[in-house]
Amino acid sequence: MKKYLSKEFMFTVLNHEIFKYLVAGVLSTIVYTVIRINIYPILQNATISAIIANVLAIIFAFIINDTYVFAQKAMGRAERFIKFFLARLSTLVLDFGLAWLLVDTFPGIIGQFVHNDMNWVNAIATLIGQVLIMVTNYFISKLFIFKHKK
């Protein structure tokens, strides 16, 4: 009985929408972070790096959220993508603001802890922003975009 309950519990947890969203969010964050951290040394501009990484991560996040997390019908996908993209652009403003504030304008806030290494400043600012953005995006997606299950 204990073994059955444990398997049942794990199945429920692994199939729960919030768990799926967290997995999708972590994967999207990894995509975003890898792109931003690799583009920053080339461009030496956190805001442009953040914009490029965001656009690519938005496309990735939509695909995984539409098919895996919220299990949407194929019908209406284009409309959902437009809503999703516009909603994510609103959190892009948050990311852009944090990049501008913490990396481009006041790098010393984080820099004092990492010997003013700008690559580390950018990486830490990126992670701070992604946590805030992930929480915000879940509520936007759940309430306004992904409403119709398969």
Rank of each mutant, 00 (worst) to 15 (best):
V135H: 03
F113I: 10
L27A: 13
I64M: 08
H16L: 15
P107N: 08
N45Q: 09
Y4R: 14
T105P: 01
A123E: 00
F70I: 10
F85D: 07
F146E: 07
K7N: 10
F113R: 04
I48D: 02
Y21H: 11
L132R: 01
L127V: 09
A50M: 01
I63S: 12
L92M: 14
A50E: 02
P41G: 09
F60N: 14
L92R: 15
N119T: 08
V13S: 04
V55W: 04
Q130P: 03
K147H: 07
E17M: 15
K3S: 10
K150Y: 02
S141Q: 06
E17F: 03
G111T: 02
F9G: 02
V69N: 05
L102S: 10
V135C: 10
L143V: 00
I110P: 04
N45M: 06
I128W: 06
V31N: 08
A57N: 07
T12I: 15
N116L: 12
L5F: 14
K73F: 08
A57R: 01
R77G: 02
V31A: 11
V131H: 08
A125L: 07
R77Q: 12
L14Y: 13
K147V: 03
H16T: 12
P41K: 01
V23D: 14
F70L: 07
G111S: 10
K2T: 10
N15G: 11
S141G: 12
A61P: 09
F70W: 12
